[in-house]
Simulated scan of single mutants.
Amino acid sequence: MSDDLTKRQCRDLPKGSPALGAGEIAALMPRLDPGWHAGGGKLTRRFEVKGYAPAHMLANATAFLAEREGHHPDISFGWGWCEVTFWTHTVGGLSENDFICAAKLDALVAG
C-alpha cells in the first residue's frame, strides 16, 4: 500500500470481500485528519463552515470526488456544517476505498 492515500485509486470490491479489521482501521486512522471517526463500520467527519453556501459547495465537491472515485458516501449538510460518511456496502464495513476517499477529501479541504 502506498504511504500517500491520495495517490491511490479506489478499486472494485465484489460482494463478500472482507472488511478491514480493527487493527487495519487503527493503522489507517492516523493517516487522516483527526476529525474523522470510525465506528459501526463507518467513517464519518463533520465539517464546520461559515454559512449555507460553503456547506453546499463542500457537499458538491464531495459528490464530485465520489463520482471520480466511483465510491459514494452519504452526505448531509445545513447552515454551517457538512457531514460525510464513507463505508463500503459490498464488504459490510470499512475498506481501503473509504480511507482513500477520506484522505482525498482532507486534501481538498486543506487546499
Rank of each mutant, 00 (worst) to 15 (best):
L5M: 10
C101T: 08
A59M: 11
G41P: 06
T62D: 01
Y52R: 11
L58N: 00
H71F: 02
A61I: 00
L5T: 07
W81A: 01
E69K: 08
G93F: 03
K42Y: 06
L105F: 09
E24G: 00
G16P: 09
L5G: 09
G78K: 04
W87E: 06
K42P: 01
D106F: 15
L65P: 05
W36N: 04
P73T: 02
K50E: 15
A66D: 05
I100T: 10
L5W: 13
A107R: 15
C82F: 02
A103D: 06
D12K: 11
D12P: 00
I100Q: 13
D98I: 01
E96P: 02
T62Y: 00
E83H: 01
R8M: 14
F77L: 03
A110I: 07
A66G: 07
M57G: 06
S76C: 06
G16V: 09
S95V: 05
V84G: 08
R45N: 05
G93S: 02
G35K: 09
V109H: 05
T62Q: 02
R11K: 14
N60W: 10
W81N: 04
G23I: 01
F64Y: 15
A102P: 03
L105A: 05
F86W: 15
P18K: 14
K42Q: 15
R46G: 06
W81Y: 15
G23V: 01
G92V: 09
R11S: 04
L20S: 04
G70Q: 08
G23Y: 00
A19D: 01
F99P: 06
P30V: 14
G78Q: 12
T88A: 11
A63R: 00
G40Q: 14
Y52F: 15
K15A: 13
A102I: 05
L28F: 12
G35D: 08
L94Q: 04
D74G: 01
N97K: 12
Q9T: 11
A22C: 03
E83P: 00
P14S: 10
P34V: 02
G111A: 11
H37D: 07
F77W: 13
